[in-house]
Amino acid sequence: MKQKLQNLRVMAARHSKKLAATAVAGTAVVSGQAMADLPAGATAAFSEVAGMGTALAAAAWPVVTVIMAGLIGISLFKKFISRAS
């Protein structure tokens, strides 16, 4: 039993070392790609998309607020009706 436990610990240690090495290698690759300069057109396009996303999120908040208020109102109404009867 102790031998099996020791074998499992050794296997887990190997697996964690491989996983750590993979994570370090992946981080190095991603950080190298992130440091690359983007063309001006791509930067402008990303800025435009971010601006549109912000505008859409701002337009959605009033709708979300009305829906949530309605759902809360319906829940409270149901609760009061069930207690009254």
Rank of each mutant, 00 (worst) to 15 (best):
A44I: 01
M1W: 04
M1F: 03
M35Q: 13
S85L: 06
A40N: 02
V10N: 06
R83V: 10
T27Y: 08
I81C: 03
F46S: 08
P39K: 13
L71A: 14
A12S: 10
A59S: 13
A60I: 11
V63N: 06
T22L: 11
L76G: 02
M35W: 02
V66N: 03
G51H: 02
P62L: 05
M68T: 15
A57D: 06
R14W: 06
V29L: 13
V10Y: 01
R83F: 09
L56D: 05
I74D: 01
V66W: 05
L8G: 02
V66I: 15
R9T: 07
A13N: 07
T27F: 05
T65C: 07
A20E: 15
H15L: 14
K2A: 14
I81P: 00
S31P: 00
A59C: 05
V64P: 00
L8F: 04
A12G: 04
H15R: 14
A36T: 13
L8S: 08
N7P: 00
A45C: 03
R14N: 12
A20S: 14
S82T: 11
Q3G: 01
A28F: 02
V30Y: 09
A84C: 00
V30E: 08
L19W: 05
V29D: 07
T65R: 09
A69V: 15
P62Q: 04
M11A: 15
A58W: 01
A25R: 13
P62A: 10
V64A: 14
A42G: 01
A84H: 08
S47G: 11
M1L: 10
A45H: 07
L38I: 07
G73F: 07
P62C: 05
M1P: 01
R9K: 13
L38T: 05
A21I: 02
Q6D: 15
R83W: 09
K79S: 12
L19S: 14
I72W: 03
M52P: 00
A58I: 09
S75M: 07
A34L: 14
K17I: 13
F80A: 07
M35G: 10
F80R: 07
A84R: 11
A50S: 09
A34Q: 12
A50N: 05
S82D: 10
A44K: 04
K17E: 15
A59P: 01
T54V: 14
V63Q: 10
G70E: 04
T43D: 00
M68F: 13
K4W: 03
S47H: 03
R83N: 13
